[in-house]
Design a binder for these strands. Structure first.
Lengths: 196, 196
DNA sequence: GTCTATACGACGATAGAC
DNA sequence: GTCTATCGTCGTATAGAC
């Protein structure tokens, strides 16, 4: 019954392609990356790429969806493990900083790519589920009284905006120390901005 | 002596080209815009474009430099007209919001374009002079005692990060009310975050 | 599923007349 | 300074053998 069908790679080729693509897209951008580049870097032929993905845009879309799903999973985990807005926010910032330091390409692709330029039908990333979930955390903090009553968008941008801009600053090489060394300062600041 | 040389446009053609280019770049991105598109949209022939600019990248660079210079001028004006960090920051946020509402394409090109993808030798926009000047305002606020002693980058991102993320949210269509209607709320929040 | 070779179109850029 | 016509290149995508 077991049909260990044939050759080498189970779902491995896809992973190779996606990994190489992530590097290339973050390094030089979607439009500066040709399918030939992807083939060379992933040690796979052009034909294979077009076998696994509909087209170049399809590769980008797969990358994008993986990323969103992963963030979703991580945030769901945070929601489960922490109950207050206070703790959740700390956990979210820690998560974002940790991804930035350990897998910078992921974060770069998430925050830096202009997805809509190459995925025309995608909504802006801030409308995506993970960002939605972050706003939900803020909302619950407001009803529980931890956070001042105020416009939800304002509160969210104040709470997470600083951290996110620290991340982009870090990726731009503007920071003197490591990103994670700033976490306490930034956390205190943004908490002051919105706490009751 | 006066050689009012010839035809129609003094420096007008350039302006036409740049204006059309700004629209196209913000609407569909640098890479999705061909020089043919620019020619059609600006009512100018391809030949003229290449006469006035070295190449496609040259057009983008001119646009970018204009923008940086303009921001520089506006911030210098603010520096002249206001003396406290408190007032300067208010003026900066008002300026940014006003540009966003009145000339959204300018702001979109400034905050949304991935300049480094098509201007390879340009430094990230956050390293540019205007952003430098904004950080300078924060620094002076710290030495004058208006702002808590803390890391300069943290203070700057907290002060302006929220406003900037409100702008991108506005451009993404996430805001229910007009951007300018949020100004007081956002200003109060970020001031709480850093004031002594 | 993986590969090589190739078709085809689009785009950046130039030449050269006016 | 402005135009049209054209060239060469490069990149996406396909065909078809293995």
């Amino acid at each position: 019954m077991s049909h260990v069908t044939n050759k080498k790679s189970p779902g491995n080729t896809q992973a190779q392609i996606l990994s190489a693509t992530l590097s290339l897209f973050t390094g030089q951008g979607y439009f500066n990356t040709s399918v030939h580049d992807i083939a060379r870097e992933s040690q796979v032929s052009i034909g294979s790429i077009y076998h696994h993905f509909k087209d170049k845009e399809g590769v980008a879309r797969a990358l994008y969806n993986d990323m969103i799903e992963r963030m979703n999973a991580e945030l769901t985990e945070i929601k489960k493990n922490h109950s207050t807005a206070h703790d959740r926010r700390r956990a979210v910032i820690e998560l974002l900083f940790s991804i930035t330091e350990q897998e910078p390409e992921i974060m770069e692709f998430m925050l830096y790519s202009k997805h809509r330029e190459f995925l025309p039908n995608e909504r802006p990333i801030c409308s995506s589920k993970p960002f939605d979930m972050m706003r939900e955390f803020v909302k619950e903090g407001m009803t529980s009284g931890e956070i001042r009553e105020m416009d939800l968008m304002v509160a969210s941008t104040c709470l997470f905006g600083g951290a996110i801009r620290m991340i982009t600053s870090s990726m731009d090489g503007l920071l003197k120390r490591s990103l994670s060394s700033y976490i306490d300062e930034i956390w205190i600041c943004s908490w002051k901005a919105v706490s009751t």
